[in-house]
Each structure stands twice: as structure tokens, then as C-alpha cells.
Amino acid sequence: PQKLSATPNPLYVAKDPATSLKNVTTYNNFYEFGTGKSDPSMYADSLQTSPWTVTIDGLVKKPMTLDIDALLKIAPMEERIYRMRCVEGWSMVIPWDGYALSKLLNKVEPLGSAKYVEFVSLADPKQMTGVKSNVIDWPYREGLRLDEAMNPLTLLTFGLYGETLPKQNGAPVRIVVPWKYGFKSAKSIVKIRLTEQMPKTSWNLIAPSEYGFYSNVNPSVDHPRWSQASERRIGDAKGVFAPKIKTEMFNGYAEQVASMYTGMDLKKEY
């Protein structure tokens, strides 16, 4: 990874200590490289992150295809320390480098009819050994409502710990949506499409009862196979046998995001 100079944004600093770089880069869910947690760190080397282009189209006034260098220059790079809560019940604290996705979306000028944003990840079996399996109907797709995508918290991310993203963490560009379960934050993005209909998203297609479209972190809505009321902090300073910590509503970002869901029954629209 190369150095990526970013200015810390004082608005987004987590109280909790950051998870070690080693843990952030060796414990990943990135099924394009295998279903094991250590598979991405072992097999992501084969990913070609340059040249790389991202196409933004659909319901926008100015559709465009940008290469990664142009994308890097759209807005000043910020460092933001976010909590990351996985739907599996573990969490990390990660210093990401990027800028608000809204900066890019404003550039392409969404049409009034655009209601959702779909993210499509790369799916090349030549570079990604996991794509040969049929665990997921490739390519991996995720989506957000337009207001969620425009929320200042939603980060278009190019790096972590002040360096370009390690391949296993979704290089060269990914989304980070800190108030939703981790799988909502699509990695290695090649396409961003604005749509009127709610996009079909990968995990929701596989198991709709387990993974809703919204998938907001919510301690009061259980996963069918486990409770979401608590989480295990990876690399907890209190040691291996540290008790689990309480999961917060919207992963602790309620102040910034709760207003987007007023009037919605989050038990039904999980």
C-alpha cells in the first residue's frame, strides 16, 4: 500500500481504541476471495487495482466513468474513525481515509426520480478465486436509499490507517456505511447506479429473512440465529476472555441518522 495523506476529521473520532492493523487486515469477509476469514488476506494479492475505473450512471444528469486517480481528486481526503459492526456479532474500530459519497453523487447530479443507489463490486474469476464458487450470484451488489447515500457519514473510502486500502479490505475503492451491518459496505466497487426501484442486494437475495435491505445495526432485532444485543470487540484490550459489549442502536450513530427512519417500523424493515 502507498501513503495516502488525509486530514483527521474531528467530527468522526471514536472514543474506543482502534483495532490493530493486523486484525483489520487478516480477519475479513470478502467472499470473492473465499468464505474463510483469513482467505482474503491470503488470496487477494491477485487483484489488479490499477488501472481501475468506476462507472456512475442510471438516473443522473451527467453519467461518467472515472479512473481511480480522478476519483481520488474529487474532494479532500479525510481520516474518519468509525466503528464497524458485522452482522455476525463482532466489531472493530477502523481509521478510514476517504470523503463523503455525497461529494461524488453531487458531481453526477442525480435526477429527481432517483430514489436508490446501487453498488456493484468487481467479479472477475481470473483475479478473484472465490468467484468460481456459487455461494453468491456474482457480482456482489449492495444498495442504499438515496438519502442514506447522501448522509454525511457515508464514506467513499480509498484507504485505512493512512495508506491505500489493502486489497483484502476492498481496494481500490469501497463504501463504508458505519450505522449498518458491515456487508452493506460494498468493496472493490466498479459501478454505481442510481435507480427508482429498490435494488436487489446480494445477501438479501440469498436469505431475505436474515438480511434485510436496510440492515441497520439494531440491538432489538435479532438475527434468526443469534441475538444482536451484544458484540465481541476484535482485539479487545481486556484480553481474549473479555465479556461482549452492548450493541448500540445504529451502531452509536443514532444522532446523525435516526431522523432518516422516522415513521418506519424498523422491526419490519430490518
Binding site: Y27, K37, S38, W90, I234, G235, V240
Partner: peptide, 13 residues
């Protein structure tokens, strides 16, 4: 593995 701190990022799992 436990004594050598090699149980990975999520030792409990």
C-alpha cells in the same frame, strides 16, 4: 496456539 498468541483476530470464535 493460545500460548503463542496465534488464535487469530477472533480467538473465541
Amino acid at each position: 496456539l493460545g500460548l503463542n498468541d496465534e488464535l487469530g483476530a477472533n480467538p473465541i470464535e
